[in-house]
Nucleic acid binder design. Structure first.
Length: 115
DNA sequence: GTGTTGACCCCAA
DNA sequence: TTTGGGGCCAACA
């Protein structure tokens, strides 16, 4: 009776994609928040890794709305252009100051509150 | 199969 | 206050 205890692997990614897809426009969330929402706060790094997998075509997710704990755009370097992520966030009404989200407490979206 | 890295976070000095 | 180190799990070489 331990077959159902191994519910992980792709499930983790599915959860990450699900939460990221639920991020409303003009709001941002953090890797840690997503990890905690999944019950894996210690695996916050996996969230970032999952987003890299989200780059796969066919998976249209607003991953640009996900930033680190400090609101820093750590993943902008993974975009086609370093300014692409910032431009997308500013296009949604989010102000970026020095590669960092301004008023993070205001635009912060907590998945735990929604889920 | 082993070793290293990574879109991170938390704690201690 | 700032700086340094540890942990955690999965993908990549």
């Amino acid at each position: 009776m331990q077959a159902q205890l191994k519910t992980k692997q792709t499930n983790f990614y599915e959860q990450v994609y699900q939460i990221v897809a639920l991020i409303p426009k003009g709001r941002v969330t953090t890797y840690g928040a997503i990890a905690k929402a999944l019950g894996a706060a210690k695996s916050s790094r996996l969230v970032g890794t999952a987003l890299i997998s989200a780059h796969h075509p066919g998976v249209n997710l607003p991953i640009h709305r996900v930033v680190n704990r400090n609101g820093l755009l750590t993943g902008k370097h993974h975009y086609d252009h370093p300014t692409h992520m910032q431009d997308l966030l500013e296009s949604e009404g989010i102000i970026i100051e020095n590669n960092q989200v301004k008023d993070l407490n205001k635009v912060f979206w907590d998945p735990l509150k929604e889920i």
